[in-house]
Amino acid sequence: MPRKTKTTKKSRALYRLNLPAHSENLHVIRKFVSEIASNLGFDEEAMYQIELAVDEACTNVIKHAYRNDQQSEKIIKITLKVKEDRLIIIVADKGCGFNPAAIKSPDMEKYIKKGKRGGLGLHLIKSLMDEVSFRMKPGVRNEVIMVKKRKG
């Protein structure tokens, strides 16, 4: 069923970056995102938060989304939608997806005892961005949608 999207507030600008889901591209992704955030007038702290949140979302895609998939093209799609009052960043993949409800806040002491080292990314994203939501269609399109408010 086609979905109708509300267009009450038009996007002022749209940026897209599609690239192979490989960790060596994280640097490129951060540059892309931080340049745009800087142009939009985000201050240094907000820029760093946006850069880090996007890095974490992409790191999750690189590490987890395609891990059992040898067939399809492993791609990360990053979309930035600039609105009057906020920047929306969507990190999408076609991998296995995950259940966002199953991800709990990490118990750091337990993590350290076990020498565990993953699972911190989503927790960070939630503390860095104003809103975070998910849309999961495994094998089709999984999205992490992050919002940062613009001051103004």
Binding site: L26, R30, E51, L52, D55, E56, T59, M108, Y111, I112, K113, K114, G115, K116, R117, G118, L120, G121, L124
Partner: peptide, 17 residues
């Protein structure tokens, strides 16, 4: 200049030992 959780994870992986 920059650290993400993957970097923090390295600290976590070795500290107990």
């Amino acid at each position: 200049k920059y650290i993400s959780s993957a970097g923090l994870g390295v600290f976590m992986g070795f500290i107990e030992e």
